[in-house]
Design a protein around this nucleic acid. Structure first.
Lengths: 247, 247
DNA sequence: CTTGTTTGATGGTCTTACCACTTTCCAGAC
DNA sequence: GTCTGGAAAGTGGTAAGACCATCAAACAAG
């Protein structure tokens, strides 16, 4: 690109921008993802929407998105939209997945790490949460309460609630990292196909824990948030250990 | 979470091919280049020609060519055609590296995470360290002291010392996690090509920090270990912030 | 020969249209 | 009630044609 440049002493006078539109679009999208405006797992607006919002044509948007896909930042699904990928997945998740298969010791190690990260997240969330994030947490709590009354269990809502707390910590890399951890947890749950916390009693306690964590974050009380989250996770670990020893 | 999973016994019956046209085109072009049909420095046929020859539309050709450009295989010149570049095999940036390069804020986020994990590791190390691990830490400290006297700086020794502490926490998954994060840190240091902690004064302080951390782990005092490690990392972050604001 | 202009080819972008796939929802069957 | 099937809407994939911006080579004027 510099081949036609004169080597004259002055770099002035010729800063006339030349950048492909698709490049500008790609940069804007990257920034949005890096900032956390577009979270991991979320869907990007459709190509047509983006084209309209940015005032460019759809092909330009497409070329930009394909760049991002090639760089492993997003995943394009035909007919299903474009979703933000977890950037840590290839580097952390895949290499270690094998370990988790066999023994439960690894599951405990994993939970240990998760507890460390989540208590910190709860503290940070209490400090930095926005009203929007609070509202989403509230929504998940309502869903869980609804499920509880109907005797239904959906782990994904649980994950969503915890993920929202992590997101409220406002650390993008941390969010991506945590989503890798959750995938592990999800994976280990699946392979052990366990129904550990199925009783009404467990569900009640877990719901109470969630409520207390939410309240602390709502009140912007970092110490309480951390403590409640720790209490919650310690309980989960203990119950799992107990279940584990009897199976 | 298992909703999308088919529990059917056989995955047979659905190998129907699906590949984007642009992908096929890209593969054909790559093959032509690696075969030598298209030599380095030569111009590819124009997009319109390729579209006609392959019987596909121009956008498909464009998307394919842009892929090749992103991979450094060809160079596109507006108005001048597309030429085959040297196959210098320039590495494609990993997604995580794009994040770290995008914004200096991400470096702080990363350091924040590192601080969280390492303070915990120090505590665990104080509780579980073995004599062998202690000896290795001692060895790295000696090397650092030696380097210090000779006015030399080797980040890798620093990393090794920290990694040994992480290993002493005796959590396999955590060790893998942490080594990934160290790679990121290493990369972010490289791209910002910074020489932040180069003065004798900094080196002295950092060495003192390491020594105190080591002592606490040696004495199996988890609280002290965590506190010393936190003090160390807080110092590093603060110095980086200060350096960052002045550059 | 040098300089400036013209002209054609090429990549860049836009518009429009249609196809293929996924998701969602709802009526119908059990 | 749950489950099944299909219609409808939304999304990405591809195609075709047009126009603009840029470069390069041929051309004309000095």
């Amino acid at each position: 690109m510099n081949n036609q440049n004169n080597d004259l002493p002055e770099p002035l006078f010729t800063p006339i921008r030349l950048e492909r539109i698709s490049q500008k679009v790609a940069n804007q999208l990257k920034k949005a993802i890096s900032n956390g405006v577009l979270r991991v797992g979320e869907r990007l607006p459709s190509e047509r929407e983006l084209a309209e919002q940015m005032g460019v044509s759809r092909p330009s948007i497409r070329e930009a998105i394909q760049q991002l896909e090639l760089q492993g930042i997003v995943e394009i699904v035909h007919g299903g939209g474009t979703i933000v990928k977890n950037i840590t997945e290839q580097e952390i998740l895949k290499p270690i997945e094998m370990f988790l298969g066999a023994d439960r010791l690894r599951v405990l190690e994993l939970t240990e790490i998760r507890a460390l990260l989540e208590t910190w997240a709860a503290r940070q969330a209490a400090l930095h949460r926005t009203e929007e994030e609070l509202a989403r947490m509230r929504g998940y709590l309502d869903e869980m309460e609804d499920d509880f009354e109907k005797g239904r269990i959906r782990y994904e809502i649980d994950f969503k609630f915890h993920t929202e707390i992590v997101a409220a910590a406002h650390n993008t890399i941390f969010l991506h990292l945590m989503s890798s951890i959750y995938q592990w947890v999800n994976y280990s749950i699946r392979i052990h196909r366990e129904q550990v916390f199925v009783t009404k009693d467990h569900q009640q306690r877990i719901f109470d824990h969630h409520l207390k964590v939410f309240q602390a974050i709502h009140d912007q009380d970092p110490d309480a948030a951390e403590a409640c989250m720790r209490e919650h996770l310690v309980y989960v670990v203990e119950e799992f250990k107990q279940w584990s020893s009897s199976h």
